[in-house]
Amino acid sequence: MIKGLGGLGDMAKMMKAAKDMQGKMQKMQEDLERVTVTGESGAGLVKATCTAKGELTALDIDPSIFQPTEKEVVEDLILAAIKDAQRRAQDKMQSEMSRVTSELGLPADMKLPF
């Protein structure tokens, strides 16, 4: 018997674990493209929807805020809603990352590349 080959079994396990992790990460990325979050401002007068990856997909503006003299207010409300949606998207992505890393037995605060 040749000494030192016992570690090859461990290497095979590590490679399998890495492949499993890659598959789970890819699935999570695909899922995040389908999950949407909605941010709002002005007590719901302006709503922005984006994917959990942060891609803006919809904007809903209550017509009651369209007053020519309130242009800057409307612009501010739109920006605030978009920023709120993006923040919620980031929170959702972090939540999903923590879930996946936990399932893989990795530390919850481990930063994986995206």
Score class of each variant (00 low, 15 high):
I2G: 04
G4V: 03
G4E: 02
G6T: 00
G6H: 00
G7S: 09
L8R: 02
G9R: 13
A12N: 01
K13V: 11
K13M: 11
M14F: 07
K16I: 00
A17Y: 03
K19I: 00
M21E: 01
G23E: 14
M25S: 04
Q26V: 12
K27M: 07
Q29C: 00
D31N: 13
L32V: 09
R34A: 14
T36H: 10
V37N: 06
V37T: 09
T38W: 08
T38C: 06
G39T: 06
E40W: 04
E40N: 12
E40K: 14
S41W: 05
G42M: 11
A43Q: 10
G44M: 13
L45Y: 12
L45E: 07
V46Q: 07
V46R: 06
K47Q: 13
A48W: 08
A48M: 10
T49R: 09
K53S: 14
K53T: 15
E55W: 06
L56N: 06
T57K: 15
A58N: 14
D62K: 11
F66M: 15
Q67R: 14
Q67P: 03
Q67E: 13
P68W: 11
P68I: 06
P68F: 09
T69Y: 12
T69D: 15
E70M: 13
E70Q: 15
K71T: 10
K71A: 13
E72Q: 12
V73Q: 07
I78N: 07
L79D: 09
L79A: 13
L79F: 12
A80P: 02
A80E: 01
A81R: 08
I82D: 02
K83A: 10
D84L: 11
D84M: 05
D84C: 10
A85S: 12
A85R: 06
R88C: 01
A89S: 09
A89G: 02
Q90M: 13
Q90R: 12
Q90W: 05
D91P: 00
V100Q: 00
L106C: 03
L106H: 03
L106M: 15
P107Y: 05
A108K: 15
M110C: 05
K111G: 01
K111H: 10
L112C: 02
P113V: 06
F114D: 04
F114Y: 08
